[in-house]
């Protein structure tokens, strides 16, 4: 392994926190979804690092499954963004508060 495992994990967590920040502070649905993508990639990085650390193939297999799930999630989410834009004429997340208590 070329670098210590901790460094890989630190990088993955930095990436994750960036994605989280994006999700928390941005208002557009598109940007929130991009934040989610970043976080998923952080997870992928951690998995690949783990796979390299333990010399096992399983981590990489999970990354492939993760990609497939991400693809389906993005397909539905973007279709929904499209739909909502047509319904409400906006994609600002906080405008969709009809389900308030």
């Amino acid at each position: 392994m070329i670098v210590p495992f901790e460094h890989v994990l630190a990088m993955a967590s930095a990436l994750f926190v960036l994605g989280l920040t994006c999700t928390l502070v941005r208002r557009q649905l598109i940007m929130i979804l991009i934040g989610v993508e970043i976080m998923l990639n952080a997870a992928a990085l951690a998995l690949v690092g783990a796979s390299a650390f333990w010399q096992q193939v399983d981590g990489q297999v999970f990354v492939v499954l993760l990609m497939a799930i991400t693809a389906s999630e993005v397909a539905v989410a973007l279709a929904m963004v499209f739909y909502l834009r047509h319904r409400k004429g906006t994609i600002v997340a906080d405008q969709f508060n009809r389900m308030h208590g």
Binding site: L24, I32, A93, D94, F96, N97, R98, H100, G101
Partner: peptide
């Protein structure tokens, strides 16, 4: 009282997750 916590705003739910 608890009902007010469900604002229906996505950002508050995400913040709660975090």
């Amino acid at each position: 009282l608890l009902r007010r916590m469900t604002t229906g705003r996505l950002s508050s739910y995400l913040a709660a997750f975090a």
